[in-house]
């Protein structure tokens, strides 16, 4: 009986401890707003408040965004791709379409179906010419399924359709 009472009193204390923790977090934003505290990381919030803020480019160095072609040294509007089709053969999800027939070895068509792509990076690794890389295009959205088929040559040439950004 006495043990049960002591247990319950301890339990009530633990409830107060819990309230203290959540209360401290809950009141966190107020000192910052009142100018009493520096807006240290985390107050009032920890995550990136997306439409108002975006992620730092420094945090995206290794991020795997949708594929893009690496521009060649001579002409930044042209890719390094030599149309060897290694990537097409290596792709586990068959999301690449490369058609030969550009000037010299350059491809005529280079499509990446982003609805299928799993960003595994096999194509990037297999490419003998180093013509592929991951972009850091974090906020790419599309309204139609067709819009997700990325024309990488057009994108490289800077004529890619205006990306819908929120």
């Amino acid at each position: 009986m006495i043990k049960a009472i002591v247990d319950n009193l301890r339990g009530l204390w633990s409830l107060l401890v819990g309230l203290h923790i959540t209360g401290r977090f809950g009141l966190g934003p107020f000192p910052v707003w009142l100018g009493l505290k520096e807006p240290e990381s985390g107050y009032p919030q920890l995550t990136t408040h997306y439409p108002w803020k975006t992620v730092d480019d420094a945090d995206l160095v290794t991020f795997r965004g949708p594929l893009e072609l690496v521009p060649s040294e001579e002409d930044p509007r042209r890719s390094k791709c030599v149309s060897c089709l290694m990537c097409v053969r290596a792709c586990p999800s068959s999301c690449l379409t490369v058609v030969k027939g550009g000037q010299g070895k350059a491809p005529a068509v280079w499509l990446n179906d982003f609805t299928l792509c799993s960003l595994c990076g096999t194509c990037v690794e297999v490419c003998p010419a180093g013509a592929l890389r991951f972009s850091h295009d974090l906020y790419w959205v599309a309204e139609k399924r067709e819009d997700l088929v990325n024309d990488l040559l057009a994108r490289l040439a800077g004529a890619a359709p205006e990306k819908a950004r929120l």
């Binding site: 209360g23 977090f25 809950g26 009141l27 966190g28 985390g42 107050y43 009032p44 919030q45 408040h49």
Partner: peptide
């Protein structure tokens, strides 16, 4: 809003 503050997010904004 209170839930948001407690959970360190902005809540309805």
């Amino acid at each position: 809003k209170a839930a948001g503050f407690v959970q360190r997010r902005p809540g309805p904004y």
